[in-house]
Design a protein around this nucleic acid. Structure first.
Lengths: 139, 139
DNA sequence: GCTGCTATGTGTAAAGTACACCTAGTGGCG
DNA sequence: CGCCACTAGGTGTACTTTACACATAGCAGC
């Protein structure tokens, strides 16, 4: 489904995706607990309450992840129907997942601190008084 | 720093950026509390403990944000030195920021649940027994 | 054979990004 | 003044990422 353009009426259109690397991280996270194939992962993603992703993007991302050695795959023909490419996380992928989650956590921390730590106090200043930590006030 | 290419020597370097839309969100968050100009935002980003961004990317992102109406800007020549383009968050930008943070929170929730809720139990199954919620088991 | 669903993949245009490089104001030094 | 360093904003370009549309293929029902 078209995740981009259109989107949340309130800020108008969304010029960007807000997804992307998050897809990678989420895919890796899913694969940490069980092996899965693309189609399955795409549906899990949709069920997880996250913005929908294009299936082509999911497949391409998985192949890219395999090229970089973060996941490995094999064809599973044990069940009837089209063959499935089963993916599993490699050790490198697991380590990378950890670093992704770490980075994501840092972003969240910064956002939390920025947003919640300085919520618009009704009896405070105007709007730009609390200057950010300037590096110099030369001038 | 070159965040991309080269990549996974054990999860070390990152083959992708893991940033990007996060930059947008962080920039918007910074601007929610005070007006600022590009150079300043770039330095705040670096000081926030987040992976470094190219300053060109920061400037371009800000201009794009302005084109889409999420921030507005004006030239500030009140101080000596090169003129600064001061940015401030618009109402649309504030709404969009909220949706970004919401989405980010959902990702974190999914990641948390996936990672922590199913840590590798030492006395459990093999590795892929706990099947994800399959949609059908046809066959 | 045809249609529908599962499952994987590609072509392509648009958008995003890193790196290298450029312009310009101010102040210090000689 | 010329030159450099620092601040501040910006562009050119190659490369990557992505959504959308479309293609392939196995199996099931008719």
């Amino acid at each position: 489904m078209a995740t981009r353009r259109s989107a949340q009426e309130g800020g108008g259109e969304t010029p960007f995706r807000m997804h992307g690397d998050l897809l990678t991280t989420t895919l890796l996270a899913f694969l940490r607990n069980w092996n899965a194939y693309g189609y399955q992962l795409a549906q899990q993603l949709a069920e997880a309450g996250l913005p929908a992703f294009d299936s082509g993007t999911v497949y391409r991302t998985l192949r890219q992840l395999e090229r970089t050695g973060l996941v490995s795959s094999f064809w599973d023909t044990s069940e009837s129907g089209p063959a499935r490419r089963m993916y599993s996380l490699t050790k490198a992928g697991d380590l990378f997942l950890s670093s992704c989650i770490d980075v994501l956590g840092r972003y969240q921390a910064v956002l939390q601190k920025t947003i919640e730590g300085l919520s618009p106090e009704p009896g405070g200043d105007d709007d730009d008084q609390p200057q950010p930590p300037r590096h110099r006030a030369r001038g």
